[in-house]
Amino acid sequence: MAKARLLLIEDDVTLIKMYSKKFTSDGFEVLVAYDGEEGLKKASEEDPDLIILDIMLPKMDGITLFKKLRSKPETFKTPVLLLTNFNKEDAVFECFKLGAVDYLIKSDVTPQEVVKKVENLLVGKQGPI
């Protein structure tokens, strides 16, 4: 049985493939959305255990999407982990204000570290990456 269902919202196919492969091989079920609108739809319909969200996305940017998730009862409590290369303090601050569980910079973390982070989050203990 899969460990958990993750929704990866990311527009770059290379990275989707890479993270999907890593999470799948580590026993997660991975759902994928390629843009902001699709991400919002899947988040509502599929009720994932955790959302991994990028910021620079087509159709709807990650922060707008995050705000919408927080305003809907069915996604209100879904944990959101930011995984992006968009490194601006305003954005980081905004995301933590919205209740992000963490904000990771893609180029600074290995897939293994992302998996560790997610595993720790889902068992309820937040450890260092």
Binding site: D12, T14, L15, K17, M18, Y19, K21, K22, N85, K106, S107, T110, P111, Q112
Partner: peptide, 14 residues
């Protein structure tokens, strides 16, 4: 360039 490099890094780390 950043995205493909990140992708490569991810696979290598795996």
């Amino acid at each position: 360039l950043r995205t493909p490099i990140t992708g490569m890094k991810g696979y290598i780390d795996m």
